[in-house]
Design a protein around this nucleic acid. Sequence first.
DNA 1: AATTCTTCTGGGAACCATCA
DNA 2: TGATGGTTCCCAGAAGAATT
Length: 509
Amino acid sequence: YNEAVREAQIDLLPCAYLHNYKCAEPPAYDPLLDPAYLEYLERAPAFCNGDVVKLRDFICRHIQHGDDGQVLYHIESGRLRPSKSLQDALTGMLAGNDEFVMIDDQKVIFEQAVHLAREAQRTGERHVLIVRGGPGTGKSVVAVNLLVRLTAEEMVVQYVSKNSAPRNVYAKLLQQGNRSKAYIANLFRGPGKFFEHTGAPLDVVVVDEAHRLNEKSGLFQNLGENQIKEIVAASRFSVFFIDETQRVTIKDIGSVSDIRAFAEQAGAHVHEADLFSQFRCNGSDSYLDWLDDALSIRPAEERITDLDYDFRVFDDPHQLFAAIAEKNAAANKARVVAGYCWEWPKDSKPNPNTHDIVLGEHGFSISWNLATTGTWAIDDSSIHQVGCVHTCQGLEFDYVGVIIGDDMRVEGGEIITDHTKRAKSDKSLSGIKSLAKADPTRANRIADEIIRNTYRVLMTRGLRGCYVFCTDPALAAYLRERMPRPSAPAPYAPMPEQLSLAAEDPLED
DNA sequence: AATTCTTCTGGGAACCATCA
DNA sequence: TGATGGTTCCCAGAAGAATT
């Protein structure tokens, strides 16, 4: 098929990435030998960037309109598959990449998904797999591995996430620092295009951060109906990785029950699985449990006596920054992030000298991430910029520093949230004021949940440690107070970080 | 010279903040 | 209260830049 295109010298595919997909079963009738069809193609709009979805849509639209229906039907009925070169390139990229090595239960889920994908292929029935997993469980690692493996098995696979940050980062990691390879980038998509998908379903769609899916699509949230429904409909097999407590904007709708409902409605076989946390130390999720308890998201089941985790509260943002910068020196895997309580003006985005975040009484100021590359989380100079939830959700670091702003404080011994302290440029709570007028109770509940979830997301980005600075001294004191005291001298030598924690940052009475 | 890759730009609608 | 202006950490297409 591709050779025929070349020989005919048709400007059908100005970008050759489409050549990464070929017809597995070439149609018996070759339309490219038909002069009438060639003339038609010359008038047809060009496809761009190897967009398989687009190609299929285009073909299907024309079938519906009856133009060249015969011809287009033959192309469409030949199953698309990734070319050998794309398969080889992808597997090769994964091979030498430590970032994507799977462990323990990740492998189990991975195998289950691969099996289901094959089943969906073999039987033609629709399957949906829902994978629950909290922060640090390696959801994305499994997702990327699925993308690579299933592509290697000749399926057309797409990785989908609402946030562009993880997409950019994983695409870049797969490219292994080489110059950008667009055919890799095209495997990663946003969720906002599936509503217009027509024709044969894609083989596999892997949805990361499924809790962040929206109802409506498009820039103005005015297109489509429901992204979950549309993704299920557009794929033979879809995998949803989800953590319901990571919903961080008012528009996020992803929930396990919704996915299950839409999948059943579409006649799919629904499977569910759980990933467990890498935060686990000595067989417990102590830090996660403690944090959920401290933020009043979920009470801990039993008293936590030992965090097994490098958690520190700083009174001086300079010290916080210095500590994180020191950790970053090792592997460029430490970052400072902040709640969205400071304006992020458009003008400052390309300018590192604009310090948006100013903590006056501490004489500290720093810039938000600059939005110049889309890969803040792995760029070399990012330590000098503060990230927000948009640029780090779905990604993980070794150590994270979190600046907690005025939207979360302690009053009367309780953590309270205050959405009015959010910056005006923050859109994650856009619409809350109108809702507050109509239904104040509900508005408060939603805003409260979103703010707590946001800080939970920020404070769980560090696999090895989390350092916080609070603009509200009462909150700092509250967190310190709730920290379990180091247990009696450990029989084994504790980690050095934990020693320095006790020395540098003694608990207050 | 042709192909591949990057950067830029506009499309097009609702909602919020501001101000009169 | 109603009009107005300004915003949306988008996405696809296309022009321009880079590369082979």
